[in-house]
Design a binder for these strands. Structure first.
Lengths: 236, 236
DNA sequence: TTATTTTCGATTATTGATAATCTATTGTCA
DNA sequence: TGACAATAGATTATCAATAATCGAAAATAA
């Protein structure tokens, strides 16, 4: 459950990866932003090699795309990417809840605390603050499934998930979300994994759909303006 | 659906990755085998840099483990790793079947062909041959879900899956597997994704459990001999 | 002998330099 | 003018050399 051999490796390339990863996830580098090896190397007082390695790792994580002899840029997510990611996330969390439920029956104090924190964040209206409270709750459920591969997969969806959350400013009914959270924890407290899983799936799918409709409208509009760019976005 | 921008990148590090990946997956390099950067560089008439990059990518794929200043070796899989992988695989395929079913109603000629090929391979008794026919069938179903992330996740489980299949020589009832395959395709042909999904889950879980029991016995025995090593295997 | 320190060989991590390739611009010719 | 080739600048890909680190064997001390 706990981070396995994660003895905070401290070679340059790992530090670079963590730094860039953070910058991408928090939006300092926007999608499409070009990352130049030597530029970053100079900024961090290091050389090209470790930066290259970091790029390759980020590519494996799906944060950047690399084209040989052309360069590395922050991955651009198509609407389809986001949909697929939320679909995958729903599958993982639904099943994780089923696995975690037996372990959680009558033992959900921690999760309740998290739900309360989310509620507070939701009322603040700050979507960024909301995300920092909401995501750990969902991740915790996946952790409690006891399956570390599911956790890895869930983590691998962070870029897409955070992107969509950022896109969602004001579009989501946070009150409804709160009610879902409460019902999910209640089901888990009963040891009813099947129900908890279904609620989670509905909760996540709702979130994706509300925004999907938004995006469809946006896509349709942008296609009228620039059909070619939109088509390319689908391909990359 | 098809491989996106996978324009067979041809830089050295990618070729190295593919080569090593194949050697690991086919068992040329056994778990625990040490990979030395300069040795491989010399063998392939290249230098250390590209090999290092390839290692980092293989690490991200879960094929090797890297310890700074110590080296890189083919990942050793614990029994738990294998169980978790099959659990994850079952989730993915079950859900993929549900998604793919509508598209497959009355349109399963291709899958039937694959099932026939698997049957032929099963009768040959060659487990390696069996795997090369069986895995594409399962992968195809995931592809037909239309969700490329699920395909990526499924691919990420290949190392564990192939390892377990190799371990299974003679222990699996291939006839029963064949019947499952037939029923799965029949359900898909009816457009009954729910049923197809459940059959897939049962099919995969069966496979994992039969071998799990084997492994439990083995583990129990080895624990009596060397409890410490077994405990460590759980951690890595 | 046993435990501790030192040294040495092997290997990884990083660096700085060079080669290969791409993009965009400039210049040439019809 | 417009198409096309040549060139220059920027960037990645690779190489070869050096520094840092580790593990185990050898040497030393108790």
């Amino acid at each position: 459950m706990a981070n396995q051999g994660d003895m905070v490796r401290d070679c340059m390339s790992d530090r670079i990866r963590r730094l860039l990863s953070e910058r991408i996830l928090t939006g300092v580098y926007e999608p499409g932003h070009r990352l130049v090896e030597l530029k970053i190397a100079k900024e961090l007082n290091t050389s090209q090699g470790p930066v290259r390695e970091a790029f390759r790792e980020l590519e494996a994580l799906g944060l950047v795309e690399v084209e040989p002899y052309k360069g590395t840029r922050v991955r651009r997510l198509s609407e389809r990417d986001l949909q697929e990611a939320f679909e995958a996330r729903a599958v993982i969390e639904q099943y994780a809840a089923e696995l975690a439920a037996p372990r959680l029956r009558g033992n959900t104090a921690e999760l309740r605390r998290q739900v309360a924190a989310i509620y507070k964040a939701a009322n603040s209206g700050d979507i960024d603050y909301y995300a920092t409270e909401d995501l750990p709750f969902h991740r915790r459920i996946v952790e409690l499934s006891g399956n570390s591969i599911l956790v890895r997969f869930w983590d691998a969806l962070q870029f897409e998930v955070r992107t969509r959350i950022l896109l969602s400013r004001g579009k989501v009914n946070l009150n409804e979300s709160h009610q879902f959270h409460q019902r999910i924890v209640a089901a888990l407290d009963d040891g009813n994994g099947k129900l908890a899983g279904e609620l989670l799936r509905e909760h996540i799918t709702n979130f994706a759909e509300v925004l999907g409709a938004e995006a469809d409208a946006r896509d349709a509009a942008s296609k009228l303006v620039n059909g070619k760019a939109a088509a390319e976005a689908q391909l990359t």
